[in-house]
């Protein structure tokens, strides 16, 4: 069953001068119950903006100008703020970026989780809340009695676990994790990945993982959505993305990432920088850095639509379209836009 479906989502940021900057354009994806989706791309490509918009926590300057966010068929962008509050944390919850520093330093870890439970009326009494907090902490591998301690008495990895416990407090259906393993040590990172995988299995969670670490995505995610300059570059299952990438950006991104299984292999960075929002290229947003295109007029003029080149494999590139039709000789009518 499709738990989350995002259709044609576009987000603008309004500057102080009243200029609208297009941060996300025409984003479309869907997430089945119990599956995991990885959202990857360089910094500044709109990953975090997308995640914040899913739970309607965009900063004040952010405006959702178009699209739908369907949670079990209900459009979260249309409901009132009060209804949204009920959805947040109970249906869709989030582990924020830099979660290690997201805990309040002057309150015990337990009291912070108890607060979540009480705000959402999950429990009847403080005593029940404490019991449930203990269960949650044990679930993420922390001894319940350590809940009485303050965040500074926890190590980085434990703080990350505590934040995950908090996100799970209200039995959400979807967990959005924004860079949950960056800034952690290798072994701790592996422990957190293992924990998220185990929780996903046991609780049948749907997971959206936002990260720039392709390795973590390859380890954890069923599907991958590669974002560039606020648009979808490529969207497919993880095997396709890593072994048969079609979009030039995906190909370059993979080449720029060192593979520990192949020590000494070549590494190539992507020349140039991601586009600035106030200076987006008029056509394809990757065109200035693209190694495949040669300034083809269509790339310079038009934003490429997201096309399904084979079942479940979506690519937004004018050139892939052509190449595919030459190579596989598929009739253009077989390719339907999303």
């Amino acid at each position: 069953m499709t738990t989350l479906e995002v259709r044609n989502l576009s987000i603008n940021y309004i500057t102080d001068d009243g200029v609208a900057l297009n941060a996300v354009e025409g984003l479309t994806f869907s997430l089945e119950q119990g599956r995991s989706l990885g959202l990857v791309g360089e910094s500044g490509c709109g990953k975090t903006t997308v995640m914040l918009s899913l739970i309607r926590l965009l900063p004040e300057a952010g405006r959702i100008v178009n699209g739908q966010v369907l949670f079990e068929g209900r459009d979260l962008l249309q409901i009132s703020e009060r209804d949204m509050q009920a959805v947040r944390w109970k249906d869709v919850s989030m582990v924020f970026q830099g979660a290690m520093n997201a805990l309040n330093p002057v309150r015990t870890v337990e009291s912070q989780i108890v607060e979540v439970l009480q705000l959402h009326s999950i429990v009847n009494s403080t005593k029940d809340a404490r019991i449930r907090t203990g269960v949650l902490l044990e679930l993420v591998g922390i001894t319940a009695k350590r809940g009485k301690q303050y965040p500074h008495q926890f190590s980085g990895g434990m703080r990350q676990r505590a934040v995950i416990a908090m996100a799970l407090a209200c039995n959400p259906r979807i967990l959005i994790a924004d860079e949950p393993t960056t800034a952690l040590d290798v072994m701790i990172q592996a422990q957190i990945i293992e924990l998220l995988e185990q929780l996903q299995r046991e609780l049948n969670l749907s997971l959206v993982l936002v990260t720039h670490d392709l390795g973590v995505v390859a380890e954890m995610c069923d599907d991958v959505l590669v974002m560039y300059g606020g648009t979808v570059a490529e969207y497919a299952n993880s095997d396709t993305i890593f072994n048969n990438p079609q979009h030039p950006y995906t190909q370059r991104l993979l080449k720029a990432f060192p593979d520990i299984a192949e020590p000494g292999s070549e590494l190539a960075s992507i020349p140039g920088n991601p586009p600035r929002l106030d200076n987006l290229p008029p056509g394809c947003r990757f065109e200035p850095r693209c190694h495949v295109g040669n300034g083809e007029p269509i790339c310079l003029k038009e934003l490429p639509p997201l096309v399904e080149i084979e079942p479940g494999h979506h690519v937004a590139c004018h050139l892939v379209d052509e190449k595919e039709s030459h190579e596989k000789n598929t009739h253009p009518s077989n390719r339907r836009p999303l």
Partner: peptide, 17 residues
């Protein structure tokens, strides 16, 4: 435990507690 950027090369992780 070092993540490998390829789902076909997933390995058994040897996690130290």
């Amino acid at each position: 435990v070092a993540p490998v950027p390829n789902p076909r090369k997933r390995r058994k992780r040897m996690i130290l507690q």
